[in-house]
Design a protein around this nucleic acid. Sequence first.
RNA 1: AGCGGGAUGGGAUAGCCAGGAGAUUCCGGCGGGCUCAUAACCCGCAGAUCGGUAGUUCAAAUCUACCUCCCGCUACCA
Length: 708
Amino acid sequence: MSTEDFPTDRPAVVTCGLPYANGDLHIGHLRGYIGADAFARALETLGQETAYVSGSDMHGTPVAVNAEQEGIDPEEFALRWHEQYQETFPKFDVDFDNYGHTHDETNTELTQEIVRTLDEEGYVYEDEILVAYDPKADDYLPDRYVEGTCPYCGAKARGDECDEGCQRHLEPGEIEDPRSVRTGNPAEYRERTHKFFRVSEFADYLTEFLDGLEGTSNARNQPRQWIEEGLQDWCLTRDMDWGIDYPGDDGAAEDVVLYVWVDAPIEYISSTKQYTERVGADEYDWEQVWTEEGEIVHVIGRDIIQHHTIFWPAMLEAADYTAPRAVAATGFITINGKGLSTSRNRAIWAREYLDEGFHPDLLRYYLTTTGGFQQDVDFSWDAFQEKVNGELVGTVGNFWYRSLLFAYRNYDGTPDTAVSDEVEARIEDAIDAFTGGVNDYSLRDVGNATTRLAQFGNEYIQRNEPWKLTDEEPDRAAQVIRDCVQLAKATAVLLSPIAPGKAQALWEQIGEDGEIADAHVEDALAAPRDSFDKPGELFAKIEDDRVAELNEKLETRIEEAASDDETEGGDGAPADGEIESDDTASEQSTNMTDTDDLEPLAEDRIGFEDFQDVDIRVGQIETAEGIDGADDLARLEVDIGFETRQVVAGIKQLHDLDELPGTQCILLANMEPAELFGVESNGMILAAGEEADLLTTHGDAALGEKIK
RNA sequence: AGCGGGAUGGGAUAGCCAGGAGAUUCCGGCGGGCUCAUAACCCGCAGAUCGGUAGUUCAAAUCUACCUCCCGCUACCA
């Protein structure tokens, strides 16, 4: 690790969080893989020796559980996803120098070697812990095989983390009221011997490590709090058989494997090693990077900061490997302002994007330059269109095309004169901005450096009006166009990390040989070829009706997923494949009407008898008071003629409780009693919508009168 | 309520971490220009208490405290 600016003379390795071999890739995943890819390419453009590696994460209970449900071997299950990922990445120009997986031989061996080192160095101890066990099925239940209640916040939680509540990582045995995910049986705890890593000993080291860590601020700040709260030792093993065996025979028993988060990050090293094995240590030396000096940059999602800033650096330090230089944690992606949800099919799937026929560079540009790296970024087809049409088509593409076309028509290529000082200086500024962006881990800055340069190009050509000069002042015209060709070349070089395909196309248009991916920033200033062929337009506008169509497809799909959810009892599986778009498109499809926000009307009709089962009465609120600790809930006493009922209602925020007593209300009287926040509720007050607009009577209905 | 992220001209965003002239860029609006270019591009304008309050400071969008509101996930949707 060093703090010297990029490029340094040490090799760098860029990684992205390992895709978990358990489902389809969507735009949220892509943000990380594309971001890391663009960052790695940008480093190379700066002249930094760089490897970009990753691999599929094959182990862990979700893979085992899902494989079991499909009745196939976990390895087969995970490999299937692994292969699909490998096919998908190139389609987005995500170009790994090596892409392995955690179950391969390299990773298995290296993981065992590293764990053995931890053990030998005295960082591992054994302890007896309680493990959930399903007595009926004679089955131990690690991690997500068990679910129950979070001991910290009381939310429903999975065995290894409180995914729906406080997001805490849970150690085995912590979860309360455990039940088996497989059988639903209540689980009991049994004593088992497991291996623990003394993470707690690394508090000081980690504090210092974080002080020097580059990347995004969230990756530095969050772990500091965890350290202050006190680090717990980390359980390295699990009672299951899908995973990597704990090294050695003495072993902590049969049926124990390493926790998936032990071998997963080690894949970063393994994958680098495989790269060296393929190209030779002369070309790229994994040992130098990982055991001597190298610039290690981890690009991850912000949900796995803990693993990369606590467990992982502690392991590296304990096993005497190089510490990461940077951890850059991306924010999440939202779709049309709402959270991406795979179970509700509110997502843009990788395959879907490709099926729509869009060039990968458009998405690459959007994802890397919209919002900061650690910011959550919203995706909408409208914003996508705006970004593409405005910046890629209008600014960059237009500048490229008008410059080159003019040059081709009048000079058969580049005019024979030197670049002007002004333009040269402007390109140098852009290179500085590009370099600064890389060093700040800001791809947006990197992208903007290019767009602004193209913007300058448009302004420059406009200001100098070469079309007026060709006859009267041929020398000046030649100068201007010479400058523009240089600017086109420079923008292509600087844009190549983000839009490698389009940059390559421009590279070819101006007659350059080889790959623009091999170009360095200095090539932005190198003289262009004397002649080139007639250029073409590299970016096409996205038309409005196309966007309308895409919006509609998305909406339709989300609705279908929602109704599937209701009718099928909510298995939550995303509808796969393409959804037929409805031809009854109306102009309203792009504008959300008010009813779009409402719950759809129920399809199923009920009989009068069903309605008879519902006993709704007129009541009057006698008293109303807030419930301690609850935000919206109020405890009400409601007089319904026959008796006064205690009811809990979520209306506190919307109503002044002092004004409620005396108000008539409508009460569903034969609701099953329920307990909320320790308060029994004996009925349900009717109210409309999110605002909890209270229903009442407007005539002289008596208390206890039935609603019919 | 918990965790996380926000609150900047009509909309979307930058700047804040390393405080210093009332503030970026994009879209939209208005006016103008140009015609090489994909109705593209260029120029000008439109006037916003940088969420609120109180501090620190010679100086705060930028630091501190408190508050309000918004978004995501989750929750208490009876």
